[in-house]
Computed example of a mutant assay.
Amino acid sequence: MRYLVTGGAGFVGSHAVLALLDAGHEVVVLDNLSTGHRKAVPANVIFHEVDLSDYQATARVVAQGAWDGVLHFAALSLVGESMREPLHYLRQNFLTALNLVQACVEHGVKKIVFSSTAALFGGPERLDPIPETALVQPGSPYGESKFMIERVLHWAHELHGLRSACLRYFNATGADPGGRAGEDHRPETHLIPLTIDAALGRRPALRLFGTDYPTRDGSCIRDYVHVTDLADAHICALGQIDNRSVTYNIGSGQGYSNLEVIRSVERVSGRKVPWEAAPRREGDPSHLVADSTTLRQETGWSPRYGDLDQIVETALRWRESHPQGYER
């Protein structure tokens, strides 16, 4: 099979590229490298440095088909930044996805897997695992932009036959167990790599945003899914959209608090994590844990790296072997 991966030089996209290659597929990557890394793309993969906001350039790549499917990861993805620059996030994420979907429709692509988000559920305060049927009430412009794209895909299916899988990620983390790829954001905003860097003495004390949430220890609770398991879920989803469109939540189903993440990093690294309390961040719900029952039942998917210490161990090995990320 032949697949086009947008954002394939980014964190999740690069791991999806590896999963597709490992499964024997041909992969082509499209990325503007605004946040991705050219070195994250394997040398044997065709790469197009293209910005999806340029419709003509996007359409030229899509027209090269024949694609068995497109996997769309490219997006702005920082919740806090979206609260400061809401119109920029709404415009950029929506219009770039719209350009890609239009190009897919015009050039006969039949399948697309979309990197959506659990931030769609940012409004309600829930204490149970969140199913796909939960009320969609984004708590940030980032989450809103993803829901807008889900609606575009709905109508692209209804009116043009473009089948889609919308995969609502919870917290992607970890690194390729073989050391081929890892997490390298500039700046880094994700808790596990920040906690690891604090333990390794590469950054000042970790700032823990919010210690007064209605949770078991006052810190936010999140569902962490290993990025390799997440990549595998995309391949599973591709097999489900031959004749229909689907929406799946992807997470481990296990919630860990921010303080529990700190303790995990301390166990795995054997180092203390310096940290200090900080005010809550706007747009952060107290509790986000996935109910991935539908994905598990329909595809047989289950996380291979479901334990937090396992996830932290792969992330730690990547951070230790790549102290400057891909720029080492």
Rank of each mutant, 00 (worst) to 15 (best):
R2K: 15
S14R: 03
A16V: 14
L18R: 10
A19S: 03
V27C: 07
L30I: 07
V45S: 09
L52R: 07
L76Y: 04
L90E: 11
F94H: 07
L98H: 12
L100K: 02
L100F: 11
C104Y: 11
V109N: 00
E125I: 13
P129N: 04
I130F: 14
S145N: 08
W155Y: 15
H160E: 09
H160F: 12
L162I: 05
L162H: 04
L167T: 05
Y169H: 10
T173P: 03
A175L: 03
P187I: 08
T189S: 06
I192D: 13
D197V: 04
R202M: 09
R207G: 00
Y213W: 07
Y213L: 15
H226N: 05
V227A: 11
I235V: 09
D242R: 13
R244L: 00
N249D: 15
I250S: 02
S257D: 06
S264V: 04
S269G: 02
G270A: 03
G270P: 13
K272C: 01
V273K: 00
W275H: 15
R296N: 13
E298T: 10
E298R: 14
S302E: 11
R304D: 06
V312Q: 11
E313H: 10
T314L: 08
T314K: 12
R317Q: 09
H322A: 10
